[in-house]
Design a protein around this nucleic acid. Sequence first.
DNA 1: CCAATTGTTGACCGATCGGTCAGTCAAATC
DNA 2: GATTTGACTGACCGATCGGTCAACAATTGG
Lengths: 192, 192
Amino acid sequence: MEISKKDNILNEALALFATHGFAHVSISMIAKQAKVTKSLIFHHFENKEHLWETVKEVFFKKYADNQMNLFESESDPIELIRKSMRYYFDFVRNNPMVPRFFAYAHLENDENCGRLDQPLMQRGGELIRQAQEHGLMRKNFNPVVLVMNFITVINQYFIAECHFKHWDNGLYQDPDTFINDFIEITIQGIQP
Amino acid sequence: MEISKKDNILNEALALFATHGFAHVSISMIAKQAKVTKSLIFHHFENKEHLWETVKEVFFKKYADNQMNLFESESDPIELIRKSMRYYFDFVRNNPMVPRFFAYAHLENDENCGRLDQPLMQRGGELIRQAQEHGLMRKNFNPVVLVMNFITVINQYFIAECHFKHWDNGLYQDPDTFINDFIEITIQGIQP
DNA sequence: CCAATTGTTGACCGATCGGTCAGTCAAATC
DNA sequence: GATTTGACTGACCGATCGGTCAACAATTGG
């Protein structure tokens, strides 16, 4: 089956918003990219703001489902952290526009983004708290710090490429080496 | 002495750019905020792009000088890491617009931002490398991962406030608790 | 004192912005 | 077969965008 024009608009809007941010992207650009008329976009979406909101919810759901499944599929907490980091890293590697998109949302003080990932952070936090109580992780740190730490670093790895381009040693440009080093620092950092 | 109109334009431009991003901010807005005419801005700065570049270099220098001094003021590497994190955290706390500003620069694929902080990353990397060779830190991670880790997390802490607002437990909203937990995880993570 | 330079302004420009609107067309409903 | 509905279009709107320009005021140097 062919992709509908509406879905096509969403896809192209995500790509453009993630690449250039909300304000840099005009409805005309999206229309051109999606090969529809500007009017059609206003037919399907109330206005530019509403289009942005819709794009956000659709693609956040894609990511959240992925992560939530992972939470339930691994019982060893240390291994869960390790796997979560690696899985999330791979997810972002395959969807490099997504962290850019959410970074724009954060910068623009989007109130909704906190609401969207709240259940995810909550669940991650709970799992870590349990592990702490069972003596599998150090007790004296707030779980949120850990969750925040790994999401942030991985997102930023794919966003701030300009930080890496100017190094002659090629190591940090190799994604696998990077994530391995980062995982080991974190795992060792939380062990009792 | 009074602040010159040109400097005033720079200050207001930083604040506006950091708050709303490049595209969202119009020259008229800056003019209004700085209480000068739009034409005066074009008199002092070639165009909008050039104003953006100037703002960036001025305020990056402010941050870089701060950090570079710290690098030379502490000889114990582990303590240097600890101090760097805390100092950088405090710097950002006092200049919360700065990380927002650079985040926008990263997102907009600003080639120059890599060039700007390259000496800083280089120096930090060297110091860590030396500490590794002296057996003061674990050897099997790339220094850049560590530098990147702490800069990223601290920046993001102040940017992504929306992540924190939706929690009932107030801990992670307390900046000091947050940075303490984060420092301990990192320090423990890199020790031999 | 005059000339050159620098700071500063308001009027103005073409382009593009988000958004509207009247209307076409095809498919579903009655 | 008439009517309603939803997808879709092109012409158009007022507002605002970045940027220009001629002119004036203030300062500076000879």
